[in-house]
Computed example of a mutant assay.
Amino acid sequence: MTELSEKQRDRLDEDQFAFPKQRKEPLNNATHVRNAMARFNQVKGVSDEDRDEAWSRIKRVAKKHGVEVREKSWRELGSES
């Protein structure tokens, strides 16, 4: 199941989000990790520091779920390098 209901989302701990203060981009499974990476640059209202911390979380959780992350930094997302 990839879609989270509001109730399921509310039950997630803060540390299960890429952006925990804002509770944005859940990271509870491989599909959500991929979605968080794909939507990363669309997240509004966060600082570059928040993005740095979120990217670290995404990379850590991606490894746990077997999701390949080629980019070393979130700044590389969407680039062809």
Results as ranks from 00 to 15, higher is better:
M1C: 06
T2Q: 15
E3C: 00
L4I: 00
S5M: 06
S5R: 14
E6M: 03
E6A: 11
K7S: 12
Q8R: 14
R9M: 14
R9S: 11
D10V: 04
D10G: 05
D10P: 00
R11P: 02
E14S: 12
Q16H: 08
Q16L: 05
F19S: 06
F19P: 10
F19H: 08
F19I: 12
P20D: 07
K21E: 05
K21V: 01
K21R: 13
Q22K: 15
Q22A: 15
Q22F: 02
R23Y: 07
R23V: 06
R23I: 08
K24I: 08
K24Q: 15
K24N: 03
L27A: 12
N28G: 05
N28E: 07
A30N: 07
A30L: 05
T31C: 01
H32D: 13
H32C: 06
V33M: 04
V33E: 07
R34W: 00
N35D: 11
N35I: 08
N35Y: 04
A36R: 13
A36M: 10
A38C: 08
R39W: 08
R39A: 11
F40H: 06
F40A: 05
F40W: 01
F40S: 06
V43F: 09
V43A: 13
K44N: 14
V46W: 05
S47T: 15
D48C: 07
D48A: 14
D50V: 07
D50M: 09
D52N: 14
D52C: 05
E53M: 04
E53A: 11
S56M: 06
S56P: 00
S56L: 07
R57N: 14
K59N: 02
V61G: 01
A62S: 13
K63L: 12
H65K: 06
H65T: 00
G66W: 02
G66L: 05
G66T: 03
V67C: 06
V67W: 00
E68P: 06
V69P: 11
V69E: 11
R70S: 15
R70Q: 15
E71D: 07
K72C: 03
K72I: 05
K72F: 03
S73R: 10
S73K: 11
W74S: 02
E76C: 03
L77V: 07
G78W: 08
G78T: 09
S79W: 08
S79K: 15
S79Y: 04
S81C: 07
